[in-house]
């Protein structure tokens, strides 16, 4: 079959358009993946912050119950031959790790 005048030029134009479309699709896919990764990172960060705040709130509640701040100006501690003239203590829990 013979080639009509101008037919070759049309083929080249189609090929060029297809190449441009291919580049566009690849760019769109890359952008989509980047957005998905950013969303995932933001979501994980938000979740970690939420968990940390929850832990802190839990700690606050426990501390408020057992707060014990005291200043001892007349200590009765037995230091042997050492005389304790004055002692000041501030602790904020009754618990101690044994």
């Amino acid at each position: 079959m013979g080639i009509l005048p101008g037919e070759h030029q049309v083929d080249e134009q189609i090929m060029e358009a297809l190449k441009l479309f291919e580049i566009f699709v690849i760019c769109a896919l890359i952008a989509l993946v980047a957005v998905a990764v950013i969303c995932l990172l933001l979501w994980r960060r938000k979740r970690r912050r939420g968990a940390r705040k929850s832990r802190e709130d839990q700690g606050a509640a426990k501390t408020a119950v057992c707060e014990n701040t005291e200043e001892l100006s007349a200590p009765d501690n037995d230091f042997g031959t050492i005389v304790v003239e004055k002692e000041i203590v501030f602790v904020h829990t009754d618990e101690v790790i044994e």
Binding site: E56, A60, T63, F79, I82, V83, K86, E87, I88, F90
Partner: peptide
């Protein structure tokens, strides 16, 4: 900002055979 005070402090003045 913080609901709890997590600091602990102790200070004492002692009279010993080597002075205060």
């Amino acid at each position: 900002r913080k609901a709890t005070n997590q600091d602990s402090l102790f200070v004492s003045r002692l009279l010993t055979c080597r002075g205060k």
